[in-house]
């Protein structure tokens, strides 16, 4: 910085370390809880230091689940979550790329009408149209299916806007050069536009994967079949069971597992994550 004041710098470091400690503390508690056995987890005060049951608990949660909460193996729920997250992220990106391409590069009737229709989705979060959307999905026979879990969530105004923004920054001459080279619209889209947008696609994928993985209200509404549960909603089932049986060591292990994939994605693809977050605005 500008002036050399070591005390302020030290203070800044200390504040940040304290901040990180506050933010990370819940994770520590969770990790500790996930590494003890059931008996230790009923004795007050709870331990603050990890025990030796971590892998035993991991094994039990992954393959057996919690008996009091239906005994659904967490491994299976994680697999469901993975499928749903990938379907949502991929679906959103594909349909948004296509519609942004149409809106930016074609002049056709109702173009702006379509644009505003997509814009409207921004104002209709699932929370405000829970019941009727549930009815639609039920009528279409999509309850308890991967399609029902993903398709209703893949319309995306933000992704469409982002790609529109990206396409608008592609110089006009790219299209002209492609036309002189004899490339038709789809060829131009595939050969030029897609490669030019690939970092944006990757950035968006990171954000949308997290979005998809963390879906809660929607899967809660439309899945009744335990084999379709996602891990995030599975946690809620376990919390309810915690009222009767105390299996906090397994619940916390599941919590850890539920946040692991998105957190790993954020940490390993941090640059893409930051780009995606700042470019989609939300």
């Amino acid at each position: 910085m500008i002036e050399h004041r070591p005390i302020i710098t030290v203070l800044a470091h200390l504040t940040l370390i304290l901040g990180i400690a506050i933010v990370a503390f819940p994770i520590w508690v969770t990790f500790v809880a996930a590494s003890h056995d059931a008996v230790r987890m009923t004795q007050v005060p709870l331990p603050m230091w990890p025990g030796d049951q971590f892998f035993v608990n991991l094994n039990k949660a992954m393959f057996e689940g919690i008996a009091g909460a239906g005994g659904i193996p967490v491994g299976m729920m994680m697999l469901n979550s993975l499928v749903v997250a990938l379907m949502i992220a991929t679906g959103k990106i594909v349909i948004s790329l296509l519609s942004a391409f149409a809106i930016v590069y074609f002049k056709f009737p109702f173009r702006m009408g379509f644009f505003w229709m997509i814009f409207l989705t921004l104002m209709l979060p699932v929370e405000v149209r829970i019941l009727p959307t549930f009815e639609v999905v039920a009528n279409l026979g999509m309850l308890n299916s991967f399609w029902g879990l993903s398709i209703p969530l893949i319309a995306s105004a933000t992704a469409t806007f982002m790609f529109r923004q990206v396409f608008l920054t592609v110089p006009d001459e790219m299209l002209e050069a492609a036309r002189v080279d004899g490339a038709g619209p789809m060829r131009f889209f595939w050969d030029i536009l897609l490669p030019l947008s690939r970092t944006n696609i990757a950035a968006l994928f990171v954000i949308l994967f997290i979005y998809g993985w963390n879906q809660y209200l929607w899967p809660l509404l439309i899945t009744t079949d335990a084999s379709m549960f996602t891990v995030v909603m599975g946690i809620k089932q376990m919390l309810e069971s915690a009222e009767q049986t105390t299996e906090w060591h397994l619940i916390m292990m599941t919590t850890l597992l539920a946040m692991l994939p998105p957190v790993v994605v954020v940490l390993t693809m941090q640059r893409m994550f930051v780009k995606g977050l700042t470019e989609t605005d939300k």
């Binding site: 110089p171 001459e173 790219m174 002209e176 050069a177 036309r179 002189v180 080279d181 004899g182 490339a183 050969d191 030029i192 490669p195 030019l196 690939r198």
Partner: peptide
């Protein structure tokens, strides 16, 4: 354009960056 048997050099070159 591609059927006119022409070639064009653009002001900003318009090279495909990828």
């Amino acid at each position: 354009p591609s059927e006119r048997n022409i070639a064009m050099v653009f002001q900003n070159y318009a090279l495909y960056p990828h």
